[in-house]
Simulated assay, not measured.
Amino acid sequence: MSEQTVAGFVEEWRRAEEDGDPAALEKLLADDFVGVGPRGFLRSRAQWIARYSSGTVRNASFRLSDARVRTYGPTAVVVAAQTQESVNGDADASGAFRFTLVVVRGAGGQVRLAGVHVSPNAAPAAG
Protein backbone atom coordinates (compact mmCIF):
# COMPACT_ATOMS: atom_id res chain seq x y z
CA MET A 1 0.00 0.00 0.00
CA SER A 2 1.47 3.35 -0.99
CA GLU A 3 1.90 6.31 1.33
CA GLN A 4 -0.27 8.33 -1.07
CA THR A 5 -3.11 5.80 -0.79
CA VAL A 6 -2.86 5.87 3.00
CA ALA A 7 -2.74 9.69 3.13
CA GLY A 8 -5.86 9.92 0.94
CA PHE A 9 -7.68 7.38 3.09
CA VAL A 10 -6.73 9.17 6.31
CA GLU A 11 -8.04 12.46 4.90
CA GLU A 12 -11.33 10.76 3.99
CA TRP A 13 -11.58 9.40 7.56
CA ARG A 14 -10.72 12.83 9.02
CA ARG A 15 -13.54 14.45 7.05
CA ALA A 16 -16.01 11.78 8.22
CA GLU A 17 -14.98 12.43 11.84
CA GLU A 18 -15.19 16.21 11.45
CA ASP A 19 -18.61 15.96 9.80
CA GLY A 20 -19.83 13.33 12.29
CA ASP A 21 -20.88 11.21 9.31
CA PRO A 22 -21.97 7.72 10.45
CA ALA A 23 -22.66 6.53 6.87
CA ALA A 24 -19.10 7.40 5.79
CA LEU A 25 -17.65 5.72 8.89
CA GLU A 26 -19.67 2.56 8.10
CA LYS A 27 -17.69 2.33 4.85
CA LEU A 28 -14.30 3.28 6.34
CA LEU A 29 -14.07 1.17 9.51
CA ALA A 30 -13.11 -2.50 9.36
CA ASP A 31 -15.67 -4.97 10.73
CA ASP A 32 -13.37 -5.76 13.66
CA PHE A 33 -12.35 -2.13 14.28
CA VAL A 34 -11.30 -1.25 17.84
CA GLY A 35 -10.94 2.30 19.10
CA VAL A 36 -9.02 3.16 22.27
CA GLY A 37 -10.00 6.51 23.74
CA PRO A 38 -7.76 9.03 25.50
CA ARG A 39 -8.62 7.59 28.92
CA GLY A 40 -8.10 3.96 27.92
CA PHE A 41 -11.70 2.96 27.20
CA LEU A 42 -12.45 0.62 24.29
CA ARG A 43 -15.07 1.17 21.60
CA SER A 44 -16.21 -1.37 19.05
CA ARG A 45 -17.01 -0.38 15.49
CA ALA A 46 -20.71 -0.02 16.35
CA GLN A 47 -19.94 2.07 19.46
CA TRP A 48 -17.54 4.34 17.54
CA ILE A 49 -20.13 5.04 14.87
CA ALA A 50 -22.94 5.46 17.44
CA ARG A 51 -21.15 8.51 18.91
CA TYR A 52 -22.30 10.37 15.81
CA SER A 53 -25.53 8.60 14.88
CA SER A 54 -26.84 9.32 18.40
CA GLY A 55 -25.73 12.96 18.21
CA THR A 56 -23.69 12.59 21.42
CA VAL A 57 -20.44 13.79 19.81
CA ARG A 58 -20.43 16.90 17.63
CA ASN A 59 -17.31 18.39 16.07
CA ALA A 60 -16.81 21.98 14.97
CA SER A 61 -13.32 21.07 13.77
CA PHE A 62 -11.18 17.94 13.60
CA ARG A 63 -7.69 18.54 12.23
CA LEU A 64 -4.65 16.32 11.74
CA SER A 65 -1.05 17.43 11.37
CA ASP A 66 2.45 16.00 11.55
CA ALA A 67 1.26 12.70 10.06
CA ARG A 68 3.92 10.02 9.74
CA VAL A 69 3.08 6.99 7.62
CA ARG A 70 4.89 3.66 7.77
CA THR A 71 3.77 0.92 5.41
CA TYR A 72 4.14 -2.83 5.85
CA GLY A 73 2.71 -4.53 2.77
CA PRO A 74 -1.11 -4.38 3.08
CA THR A 75 -0.90 -2.57 6.44
CA ALA A 76 0.09 0.95 7.41
CA VAL A 77 0.62 2.63 10.75
CA VAL A 78 -0.01 6.37 10.92
CA VAL A 79 0.97 8.54 13.87
CA ALA A 80 -0.39 12.09 13.78
CA ALA A 81 -1.12 15.09 15.95
CA GLN A 82 -4.80 15.97 16.16
CA THR A 83 -6.77 18.94 17.45
CA GLN A 84 -10.51 19.22 17.79
CA GLU A 85 -13.22 21.57 18.86
CA SER A 86 -16.05 19.33 19.96
CA VAL A 87 -18.61 18.38 22.56
CA ASN A 88 -19.45 14.97 24.00
CA GLY A 89 -22.96 15.28 25.37
CA ASP A 90 -22.88 18.53 27.32
CA ALA A 91 -19.13 18.37 28.04
CA ASP A 92 -16.45 20.22 26.11
CA ALA A 93 -14.27 17.57 24.47
CA SER A 94 -11.95 19.99 22.69
CA GLY A 95 -8.24 19.42 22.92
CA ALA A 96 -4.97 18.25 21.44
CA PHE A 97 -4.22 14.55 21.00
CA ARG A 98 -1.90 12.05 19.34
CA PHE A 99 -3.49 9.37 17.20
CA THR A 100 -2.10 6.04 16.08
CA LEU A 101 -4.13 4.63 13.19
CA VAL A 102 -3.86 1.11 11.78
CA VAL A 103 -4.92 1.09 8.12
CA VAL A 104 -5.32 -2.22 6.27
CA ARG A 105 -6.08 -3.39 2.78
CA GLY A 106 -8.52 -6.31 2.96
CA ALA A 107 -8.79 -9.35 0.73
CA GLY A 108 -11.24 -7.50 -1.52
CA GLY A 109 -8.79 -4.62 -1.96
CA GLN A 110 -10.74 -2.14 0.16
CA VAL A 111 -8.75 0.10 2.47
CA ARG A 112 -10.20 0.20 6.00
CA LEU A 113 -9.34 1.56 9.42
CA ALA A 114 -8.72 -1.41 11.72
CA GLY A 115 -7.90 0.57 14.84
CA VAL A 116 -7.24 3.91 16.43
CA HIS A 117 -5.51 4.74 19.69
CA VAL A 118 -5.91 8.24 21.10
CA SER A 119 -3.62 9.81 23.70
CA PRO A 120 -3.77 13.29 25.22
CA ASN A 121 -1.08 15.60 23.86
CA ALA A 122 0.49 17.68 26.61
CA ALA A 123 1.94 20.14 24.08
CA PRO A 124 -0.33 21.95 21.60
CA ALA A 125 -0.48 20.20 18.25
CA ALA A 126 1.13 22.01 15.33
CA GLY A 127 -1.10 23.32 12.62
Rank of each mutant, 00 (worst) to 15 (best):
45 R>E: 00
47 Q>E: 15
40 G>P: 06
100 T>E: 09
93 A>H: 11
79 V>G: 04
56 T>H: 14
4 Q>L: 08
55 G>C: 03
27 K>W: 07
38 P>Q: 08
122 A>W: 07
64 L>C: 09
118 V>T: 10
15 R>W: 00
56 T>N: 15
80 A>F: 01
64 L>H: 15
17 E>A: 09
71 T>V: 15
1 M>R: 02
2 S>P: 13
103 V>L: 13
121 N>W: 11
42 L>W: 07
44 S>W: 13
114 A>D: 06
20 G>E: 08
38 P>E: 07
7 A>H: 08
81 A>W: 06
78 V>D: 08
25 L>G: 10
105 R>K: 12
73 G>Y: 02
79 V>R: 15
103 V>W: 14
89 G>P: 07
116 V>W: 00
57 V>H: 07
55 G>P: 12
69 V>C: 04
23 A>M: 09
98 R>T: 13
46 A>T: 04
109 G>T: 05
103 V>D: 11
91 A>S: 14
11 E>D: 14
117 H>V: 08
62 F>E: 00
28 L>S: 05
96 A>D: 15
36 V>P: 01
26 E>D: 13
63 R>C: 01
102 V>L: 09
111 V>E: 03
91 A>N: 15
81 A>I: 02
55 G>M: 04
28 L>K: 05
115 G>C: 04
105 R>G: 05
98 R>L: 12
63 R>S: 04
65 S>P: 02
27 K>G: 13
76 A>Y: 02
64 L>G: 05
3 E>R: 11
48 W>A: 14
120 P>C: 06
69 V>I: 15
27 K>T: 15
34 V>H: 07
66 D>P: 08
36 V>E: 03
92 D>R: 14
114 A>T: 05
109 G>F: 01
8 G>I: 03
7 A>Y: 01
3 E>G: 10
10 V>T: 10
50 A>H: 03
94 S>A: 09
94 S>N: 12
30 A>T: 05
97 F>D: 00
101 L>C: 00
81 A>N: 11
89 G>I: 13
57 V>E: 08
112 R>H: 01
28 L>M: 09
54 S>A: 13
6 V>W: 04
63 R>E: 10
1 M>I: 09
73 G>L: 04
120 P>F: 14
68 R>L: 11
80 A>M: 05
6 V>T: 08
41 F>A: 14
61 S>E: 13
30 A>F: 02
120 P>V: 12
122 A>S: 10
